[in-house]
């Protein structure tokens, strides 16, 4: 179950706050809560996940209650409520991708990284999970890596190995 309990003191840099200021301008006066999802994406891009402290600071910035942030962060599956690997390999596990081998790819990733779904490798570099359809059904099997959400398409065991090696050497 999703729960909001993991904490970590978080400082927002001026650059990030400047990004928030730009986002809020998109909405009418008094509707700044609309900025919540884009702001949470920006925070996750900066820190890799959303700690309770980070969410509280977002609430303070938007002048809304912390619970309004928690209830959103727990609803949308893109937001991580606990620390992840530096690279999170998210593999589509929905029907069309499974027709072309997604389950095989997930097994391979689990074996290759040596950690179960949602666990982080000891070096802190990788975690992985199966996710639902990401609108790339014709290019399956497919995985994505945030925060840029680059897609890696038509996956094979070999291309997954190559990708993991490339990320390791970055």
């Amino acid at each position: 179950m999703l729960s909001v309990k993991n904490n970590h003191p978080t400082e927002f840099q001026d650059e990030l706050i400047a990004q928030f200021d730009e986002i809020v301008k998109r909405y009418p006066e008094g509707r700044q809560k609309s900025a919540l999802l884009p702001i949470l994406h920006a925070v996750q891009a900066a820190f890799g996940w959303l700690s309770v402290d980070a969410m509280d600071k977002v609430a303070a910035y938007l002048e809304i209650e912390p619970i309004e942030v928690y209830e959103v962060a727990t609803f949308y599956t893109m937001f991580f409520l606990q620390p992840q690997g530096k690279y999170v390999l998210e593999v589509c596990r929905t029907g069309p991708c499974c027709l072309v081998g997604a389950e095989r790819i997930m097994k391979h990733i689990e074996h290759r990284l040596g950690v179960k779904e949602n666990e982080v490798t000891p070096d802190g570099l990788f975690s992985w999970r199966g996710i639902e359809c990401i609108a790339a059904c014709g290019m399956g099997p497919v995985l994505q890596i945030g925060p840029t959400y680059t897609y890696y398409e038509n996956l094979t065991e070999e291309s997954v190995d190559q990708l993991i090696e490339e990320l390791k050497s970055k």
Partner: peptide
């Protein structure tokens, strides 16, 4: 015109 991101919810 503005672009708004969702959060991964069908």
């Amino acid at each position: 015109l503005y672009v708004q991101p969702g959060g991964g919810a069908y």
